[in-house]
Amino acid sequence: MLNRLISYLSGKQNETAAVMLYRQIVAQARQPAFYGRHGVPDSLDGRFDMIVLHSFLVMRRLRRSGTEAAKELSQQLFDLQFADMDNSLREIGVGDLGVSKRVKVMAQAFFGRVEAYEAGLNAEDDHVLAEALTRNLYGTSQPPAAGLAAVATYMRMTDQRLAQQPDDSILAGNVDFLPPPA
């Protein structure tokens, strides 16, 4: 699925970096510990939300860079993510008319989560972030208290780790995520 998206890209340096970043985001979002140990629902929604969470963290880091190259890379990453979502919906059998509606809902969900996670990370304590994670990442399931706390701490620490990574590295498509919380 991802390889088809790669072929649609024209080969510009930032587009290659976007593919590299997206692969790392998806790999991190698929870490079994998030689903098993920390109670994130192992469902289409839960997996979507883990990708959104990690995409948000990378895009937040790119935005902090303030450069035009970072802004372009962030947009390419967003476009690639939603092209992947479109392809995934088609692969599971959603019809052409349903795909555009669902992708629109997913994009709206993405922007809502970005706003909620931004507020949560900007808050002084984890209460706002925990509420955002409960509402979005855990959805209709009841998050285990330890899992929720671990994911909130993971988000804060990963945000700090990404902030310490050099712009050149991230613009080249390399991020260094923390391992999932133990």
Score class of each variant (00 low, 15 high):
R4H: 14
R4S: 13
L5P: 02
S7K: 13
S7Y: 11
S10K: 11
G11V: 11
Q13Y: 10
Q13T: 12
N14K: 10
V19S: 05
M20Y: 08
L21S: 00
R23D: 05
Q24C: 02
V26R: 15
A27E: 14
Q28S: 05
A29P: 05
A29F: 10
R30T: 04
R30V: 03
R30E: 12
Q31L: 13
Q31I: 03
P32G: 06
F34M: 01
G39S: 04
D42I: 08
S43E: 11
G46H: 04
G46K: 00
D49R: 09
M50K: 03
I51G: 06
V58D: 00
M59H: 01
R61Q: 06
L62G: 04
S65G: 14
G66Y: 11
T67P: 02
A69S: 12
L73P: 05
L73D: 00
S74W: 06
Q75A: 13
Q76Y: 09
Q76R: 14
F78A: 09
D79A: 10
L80M: 13
D84R: 07
N87A: 07
N87M: 09
L89H: 00
L89D: 04
E91F: 03
E91P: 00
I92N: 02
V94F: 02
L97E: 13
L97K: 14
S100Q: 15
S100L: 15
S100I: 15
K101H: 10
V103T: 13
V103N: 06
K104D: 09
A109R: 08
A109N: 11
A109T: 12
G112E: 01
R113E: 05
E115L: 13
Y117M: 02
Y117V: 04
Y117C: 01
A119H: 15
A123M: 10
E124Q: 14
D125V: 01
D125H: 06
D126H: 02
H127T: 14
A130L: 06
E131D: 12
L133C: 02
R135Y: 11
N136V: 00
Y138E: 07
Y138L: 05
T140M: 11
T140L: 11
Q142S: 10
Q142H: 03
P143H: 07
G147D: 00
A150E: 10
M155T: 04
R156C: 00
R161L: 14
L162W: 03
L162T: 02
Q164R: 14
P166M: 15
P166C: 09
D167W: 03
S169C: 00
I170A: 01
A172N: 10
N174G: 01
L178C: 01
P179D: 14
P179A: 13
P181D: 10
P181H: 14
